[in-house]
């Protein structure tokens, strides 16, 4: 595909004017910086309402409010996006983006809206909104982030979660997001890749097909600090449970 030619990493942020409520645009900046640090050539572009969706190595989808989420979904249905992803373009999606890629989602009250159907994932409205720190176990690592959403997402058989929830709700209090070939999705909104440099590097490794040389930055300290905060909270919670 064009987007992968000449080993240029082509990152396309989709509709930041609709989906980008919580600094989600930061994820593209993180990938670009970390790729350039490994001498990988990167191009970052944004597609706004009314523009055509170009080819990409990786599309990034952020979070948004109900009305904009529905509009973004409509624009993605019409724009050839589904075919490109089915044809191998990768996607990194958070929050509303996670819901849009799925089979259906709930908006504006409890109305069900059809999603893009790229992933067998149904989102309904939860009884309460989940707002706060979120953490999950992804393989050997901890993913740290912040969630703010009212959705409950149920994955179909054969769809693997991205992580197992340690703190917060994620999809349903047990699993967070999903991971299918070429697609990463999480409820950890905002610049989740800024908080989790290892995940940014995993995405880069998969996109470039080459191992990523270590690259130290203050982001590693931030990640360690967030993990320590989560761990101390979890051990407090365990102590409280144990003392009962």
């Amino acid at each position: 595909m064009d987007g992968r030619n000449n080993s240029v990493l082509n990152l396309v942020v989709l509709f930041p004017d609709l989906l980008g409520t919580y600094g989600d645009g930061g994820n593209a900046a993180v990938l670009a910086t970390r790729a350039r640090a490994r001498d990988i050539e990167v191009r970052v572009s944004e597609v706004t309402i009314g523009e055509e969706i170009p080819e990409a190595s990786l599309y990034l989808l952020g979070g948004g409010e109900d009305g904009p989420q529905r509009l973004a979904c409509d624009l993605l249905k019409d724009g050839g996006f589904v075919d490109r992803v089915a044809g191998g373009a990768a996607v990194f999606a958070v929050c509303a983006g996670l819901q849009i890629l799925g089979t259906s989602f709930a908006i504006e009250g409890d109305a069900t809206y059809p999603g893009l159907g790229l992933v067998d994932a149904v989102t309904t409205r939860g009884r309460v909104r989940s707002v706060g720190d979120m953490a999950s176990r992804v393989g050997e690592r901890m993913l740290v982030g912040f969630e703010n959403h009212g959705g409950v997402t149920t994955l179909g058989p054969g769809v693997g979660a991205l992580g197992t929830v340690l703190v917060g709700r994620g999809n349903d209090g047990v699993a967070d997001g999903y991971r299918t070939p070429g697609i990463w999705a999480t409820y950890a909104h905002g610049p989740v890749l800024a908080l989790n440099p290892w995940l940014a590097d995993e995405v880069l490794v998969e996109l470039s097909g080459e191992p990523a040389a270590p690259w130290e930055s203050v982001a590693d300290r931030l990640y360690a600090e967030r993990c320590a905060t989560i761990n101390s909270r979890r051990s407090d919670a365990a102590r409280i449970r144990g003392s009962r």
């Binding site: 930061g26 900046a29 993180v30 910086t33 610049p191 800024a194 930055s217 203050v218 982001a219 300290r221 931030l222 600090e225």
Partner: peptide
């Protein structure tokens, strides 16, 4: 301060914590 330093680093701004 680590959050803002990380933000500035990804913005290409020289900074210290």
């Amino acid at each position: 301060r680590l959050d803002i330093a990380t933000r500035l680093t990804y913005a290409g701004v020289s900074c210290e914590v």
